[in-house]
Every structure is written in structure tokens, then in C-alpha cells.
Amino acid sequence: MTTSALTPSQHATDNDVDILRTVPARYARLAEELGKRIIGQEETIRDLFVALAVQGHVLMIGVPGLAKTLLVRSLAEILDLPFQRIQFTPDLMPSDITGTEIIDETEPGKRAFRFVPGPVFASLLLADEINRTPPKTQAALLEAMQERHVTVAGQTYALPTPFFVLATQNPIEQEGTYPLPEAQLDRFMFNLRIDYPSRADEVRILMETTSTNDTSLQTVWTGHEMIALQHAVRRIPVVQSVAEYAVSLVQATRPSDNSAPDFVKRYLQWGAGPRASQYLALAGKAFAALEGRFNVAKEDIRRSAKLVLRHRLITNYRAEADNETADTIIDRLLQSIK
């Protein structure tokens, strides 16, 4: 991996470069603050920050009790962002997310409709157990996640800036759930798999969560600073060879593509679309900024591959029979594409 110093470029202003220079140290502060409440989960914290640095939404999959909700709530506190949590249930309606119009008396004898915003009007939205609500309600988030506005009764309302959706899923209990359609999954930049803590971390969790300690967190970034960071990160350049590598990796996931290896044609029904290439590049920029670099290396693309691709690959029955998963197929792709 190249490790050139962070230097001004024709693509970035002096202010952008100044912002990017501060990223490694400020992220270290953010991780330290989160560490007061969240034990372990260092990679998860890093990956969440990478997505937020480029305005990406994140789907987190893990069993109950792994502090997913606490992590998101704490992150909102450290970034000083308005936070809302929606518990998705089978009877949740789209208006419970976006908001609704009510009849309001404007003056004596006169009435008019007034829009009451729903919880989606927050900078950081936690969609808890998103697959427990029917597709009609899931779709209420589609416009918000992609267009960053919602439409109610023919009127369009802009969402706050910045705006992030962090959704959770329970991988165990599938009874009474509604799998997310591919169009919805494609709106998520990353798919994070959150695993059990190590033995040492679990002992620390037990000791600290069964005491009376109440830890307060300090703000590290504000909402306005996050917007400036997002603009600065997007100005990090991607050289032609790295862009071609990212596209080659994505195209190789498509069974109908001539560049797809035999194992892809054998085990996948569908591969990733062009949005995956864009997200690989954006993630690469954020990973570079975290390491104080002003260039995206192929290694940045590789470390983003599973996060970006695992929920965009649809395996077939042969893959299940041979114990092949999206992750194992991505590992094989990373070895085969040089």
C-alpha cells in the first residue's frame, strides 16, 4: 500500500486538507470516548465511522445483547446529532416513520392541514429490527435513504443534514420477519456482522454494567463539522488503476459477465450493481483519511470488499450445498483478481 503524506491536491481546497489532517487524531478521540461505554467492537466502531464519513447507511446484523442500540445512541451523543429510534413491528405503518397530516384550527372557524414530522426527521435514525415490519412499511425508508426527503400527501419535505440510517437485524429469530428486498438492501452502504465479545471483553462488560457507574461522553464532532468532513473526504482522489480494480472486483461478481470466475458462475444467481463500485471507492477514501493519506490504495478497496458486497450477492442452492457463503466467495474473488 502506498503511504504518501497528506498533501494539498488540485482536487481539494486548503480547508479540505486542513480538515483531513485532523481525522486520525480526532477519530482516536472518538474511539476513546466510545470506549467508555462500548467494550471491544473496535472494528465495528471504525466501520461505522467510515460509512458516516461518506454519508453511507449501515445494516448491522448480530444477536441480541451485543450493544448495537447503545453503540448507535452513544455515537449520536459524541457527534452531537439529533437521534431517534424506531422499533419496527408487524403493525408499524409508513406514517409512523415519515409523519402525518392533522387538521389544525388556524383561527376561529378556519381549519387547515398541518404536517407533523415523524421520527425519520433526525440526523441519526436507528431502525431497530428493520425486518420485523412488512415491505410496505420498509419501503417508507427507501425514499428517505436515497433521496434524503420524504413525500406525504403530495408534499415533499427535506430531511436534516447530515442524515444517516443505521438498521439492525437479528440473524437467529426469523419467524414473523420480512426479508429486506434487494432494492432496500442496495441502499445500505455496509453490512456489518457483529460477533460475540472475547472472554476478556465479556468479563469487563459484566463488571462495568452491573455497577452504578454512569459514564458521560464528550462531543468530538458536531453536525456541521461532519458535513465539512464528508465534503473533504469526497475530494480525496482515486487514481485510474484503483478505480479499474474496484470495477473489476464488482463485475467479477456477476455470473453473466465474461470476467466472472467459474466459482462465481457456479454459486451466484446475481452479483453486485454499479452502486457497489461507488461505495468501494467512497469507503476507500474514508479508510485513507483515517490513516492520514490523501490517496486511495487498492488495499483500501480490498478491506471494504466484504462490507460493501456481502449483502449484494445472491447465492444459489449449489452454494448452500457446498457451504459457500457470500463471504467465502468474496475471499476467493480477492485471491483471484490481481
Results as ranks from 00 to 15, higher is better:
Pro8Met: 07
Gln10Phe: 03
His11Trp: 06
Leu30Ser: 09
Leu34Glu: 00
Ile38His: 09
Arg46Ile: 04
Leu52Gly: 05
Ala53Ile: 13
Ala53His: 14
Ile61Glu: 06
Leu66Trp: 00
Leu66Tyr: 00
Ala67His: 02
Leu75Asp: 00
Ala76Cys: 10
Asp80Leu: 03
Pro82His: 05
Arg85Phe: 10
Ile86Gln: 00
Met93Ile: 08
Asp96Gly: 13
Pro117Leu: 06
Phe121Gln: 02
Phe121Lys: 02
Asp128Asn: 04
Lys136Glu: 08
Thr137Ala: 04
Ala140Trp: 01
Leu142Ala: 07
Ala144Asp: 01
Ala144Glu: 04
Gln146Asn: 15
Gln155Val: 15
Leu166Gly: 08
Ile172Glu: 04
Glu173Pro: 14
Thr177Ser: 01
Pro181Asn: 09
Phe190His: 13
Pro197Trp: 12
Asp201Glu: 15
Asp201Asn: 14
Val203Ala: 14
Arg204Gly: 02
Ser211Thr: 15
Asp214Arg: 15
Val220Cys: 09
Trp221Thr: 11
Trp221Lys: 09
Ile236Leu: 13
Ser241Val: 10
Ser241Glu: 14
Asp257Asn: 15
Asp262Glu: 15
Asp262His: 13
Phe263His: 08
Val264Ile: 15
Leu268His: 03
Ala276Lys: 04
Ser277Trp: 03
Lys285Asp: 03
Glu299Ser: 14
Ala305Phe: 07
Arg310Ala: 13
Ala321Trp: 06
Ile329Arg: 06
Leu333Arg: 00
Ile337Ser: 01
Lys338Gly: 11
